[in-house]
């Protein structure tokens, strides 16, 4: 693995499968009376969140603490950032405190890349979501969830499995990271959205695209619904919420067209009634709650593989110095 996890494209297939296997071992920790391992004792992980997040921050915090790391939470609100401090000065502060890893979420695409490659900090940088760009640990936990449900029936891999990712692809860092990672793992990804919600340059992504949800669903092994990110929308991407919901929402009628083994996923937060109806979200096919559980195991695996040894595991790339 590289020293930083900035993009799902940083992971080779070997790296990604190592993360999945490690997460599988770490998942059983949740069933033990003492949910703690000593691997990162004495290491410091800083959660640097410039953008609101509950699930991801708590998940990273739980992951780091279960590995016995010291965790410093750093939220934009109530910090010097609201007083006008720059990313660079924040980074220099973290460096002076001796952080071993910085988990960063930022509303600007590329902020984690800047942090990792500017020479401001020596720590490993983990991208926890940057703007509309990437969210690699979400992709890993999604892949892990699919792998647990589907790989046992297909020889331990996701080769040839069909994944439909439906909704606001334009604003979704989850969709981009998933598309890249799932391709690496051998799955076939189809993105489904109205034409206005595909980003420019979608042709260059390693995916198929479709505007018609009903034709994609019967072939899918996994259906992943995305939230419509209205806070990032400044314009009319679709006429009304009801029309969007009717054409691109997953309801009971559409769920009935799925294959028996197909699972329904959602990275959260869900808007029930918009992209997914309550009966689908609460059905047996839904693995949405499991995704959250798996998130902790996957983030533990990432932190362990980056920080646990003298250098990151399976160095397939040249390391600095």
């Amino acid at each position: 693995m590289k020293r930083h996890l900035l993009s799902a494209a940083d992971l080779t297939r070997d790296d990604a499968e190592l993360v999945l296997r490690t997460a599988e071992e770490l998942r059983s920790l949740a069933d033990r009376p003492i949910k703690k391992l000593p691997a990162l004792r004495g290491r410091t992980v800083v959660n640097l969140f410039f953008e609101d997040s509950t699930r991801t921050r708590i998940s990273f915090e739980a992951a780091a603490k279960r590995l016995s790391a010291d965790v410093i939470n750093f939220a934009a609100k109530g910090s010097s950032l609201s007083k006008g401090e720059s990313l660079k000065d924040t980074a220099l502060t973290l460096e002076a405190m001796g952080a071993d890893a910085v988990v960063v979420r930022h509303s600007a695409s590329g902020a984690p890349h800047r942090l990792a490659n500017s020479g401001w900090v020596r720590s490993s940088v983990v991208n926890a979501g940057d703007g509309t760009h990437e969210h690699p640990t979400q992709a890993l936990l999604d892949a892990f969830t699919m792998w647990r449900h589907l790989a046992p029936q297909s020889g331990g891999s996701l080769d040839g499995r069909r994944v439909a990712i439906v909704g606001d692809v334009l604003h979704s860092r989850v969709a981009r990271s998933n598309a890249l990672l799932l391709r690496t793992l051998g799955a076939e990804v189809t993105l489904v959205a109205p034409p206005t919600l595909f980003p420019v340059g979608i042709e260059s992504w390693p995916v198929e695209t479709s505007y018609d949800l009903d034709s994609v669903l019967p072939k899918a092994d996994v259906v992943m619904m995305l939230r419509v990110q209205r806070e990032r929308m400044h314009g009319g991407f679709f006429p009304t919420a009801r029309e969007y919901s009717r054409r691109y929402g997953l309801d009971g009628r559409r769920m009935a067209t799925l294959q028996d083994h197909t699972i329904v996923m959602h990275p959260g937060p869900m808007v029930r009634g918009m992209e997914i109806t309550a009966d689908v979200a609460d059905s047996d096919r839904s693995v949405i709650v499991e995704q959250v559980t798996n998130g902790v195991a996957v983030r533990m695996a990432v932190l362990y593989l980056l920080l646990g040894g003298s250098q990151p595991a399976v160095s397939t790339e040249g390391l600095p110095e």
Binding site: T22, E25, A39, L305, L306, G308, S310, Q311, P312, A313
Partner: peptide, 14 residues
Amino acid sequence: MYRDDLRMKPARAL
């Protein structure tokens, strides 16, 4: 994860 030489080598697979 309990090895005393964990820090001396690249991270090992579990």
